[in-house]
Design a protein around this nucleic acid. Structure first.
Lengths: 205, 205
DNA sequence: TAGATTGTTAATCGATTAACAATC
DNA sequence: TAGATTGTTAATCGATTAACAATC
């Protein structure tokens, strides 16, 4: 199969959300024209993106909403539940652990790690905060493959190193630090101040 | 001037962070070769990106760290302070209002809005939470141009509409909703569950 | 069958990278 | 001057879009 560009994956996730809403409304068919109108994408882009991952449509009719929805679930790995480890029980960690969108899509933060004695042992929404020293043990036990790093930048690389040694294969990193990770580990970075900077850059022009 | 691609702006923000650290260490010169090594970019890409916004180097020597740092500050609009309005005093709003990276780069969340009577009137780190109904008045008074939307998806468009009518020109949106905004307003979206989905997609392959 | 719309190919556009002239 | 490195141009690569044959 042709390889799926990252940017296409991001759009698939957006398509999926809208297709789910059509499914809920009981719609049976939808055209690339209609999808494009609603989400402000070109119909040809939608057809191209969808063709990477399967054939969910019927010529002359449009896409079968149910089939499309299931196909997108499958492609994005959302036809199952994922356990996620959260590293860092600060303000950001707290917000992420309560973020409803994760659970809605099958991501469950099932353990939180921190190094602060005042936090270790507490529970947030039923999830225990454990000592970072326990990370390898707990992550291996639970067979966790996805982790979120929400620690200060100066601890981020250390956290990543332990995570990868513990068997984590994909990391979402919120620390403003360019992590060094091995081939085969998927890394996504969200840098909140970079995002704001692109706004101030725009306003400056 | 040639127009500056969004993706280049993002990299400039990364370059800037590293250049600042060189400045702090007292380094006077740095080459695109060295920058590339450190940040894992191609030297030619760095030179191309920097050439969009100015000439900070000297042939045969490298880039003047101080000049480069100031140039990046200026381009990104970080040679000044920005007041930012935060809409939504939930968990995510709380984390954003405490996020140290914003203040470090000159972004000050100077007002928070919510519609919940139990929150209105409280203060977070010295910043008052005000009624959403006061948004047009307060934003105009303070001449705020940048806002962050951290409300549930079903309130996001309404929040955006009020913001734009109040004179806001750039929005960072955390709600998983495709906002309709007029030409001339800069919109950046951060969709936390989409980011996780690209990890689960990777793990599924 | 005629009309509609997918899936795919070809053309276009934009971003990255290599190459190199300019110049310190 | 010789060596180094920028700034910029040209070549390459990859993503978007238009066009259209396939087919319901």
């Amino acid at each position: 199969m042709e390889k799926l560009p990252e940017i296409t994956v991001n759009r698939l996730s957006i398509y999926r959300r809208y297709v789910k809403s059509l499914l809920k409304k009981g719609k049976l068919l939808v055209t690339s024209e209609k999808l494009g109108k609603k989400m402000h994408f070109k119909p040809s882009q939608i057809r191209r993106d969808l063709s990477y991952v399967g054939q969910f449509g019927e010529r002359g009719k449009g896409y079968n909403v149910k089939k499309l929805s299931q196909g997108l679930d499958k492609t994005l790995g959302l036809d199952r539940k994922w356990q996620v480890a959260l590293v860092g029980a600060g303000n950001l960690g707290r917000a992420l652990s309560a973020y409803p969108g994760f659970r809605q899509h099958g991501f469950k933060i099932s353990v939180i790690f921190d190094n602060s004695p005042t936090k270790i042992g507490k529970t947030w929404l039923g999830v225990e905060i454990r000592d970072i020293k326990q990370m390898p043990k707990v992550i291996k036990e639970k067979k966790i493959k996805i982790a979120i790093i929400a620690v200060p930048y100066f601890s981020a690389q250390q956290a990543a190193d332990i995570l990868m040694r513990s068997g984590v294969k994909a990391i979402l990193n919120f620390a403003p630090y360019k992590l060094a990770v091995p081939e085969g580990l998927k890394l996504k970075n969200i840098d909140l101040s970079t995002e704001l900077q692109s706004l101030s850059c725009f306003l400056t022009k």
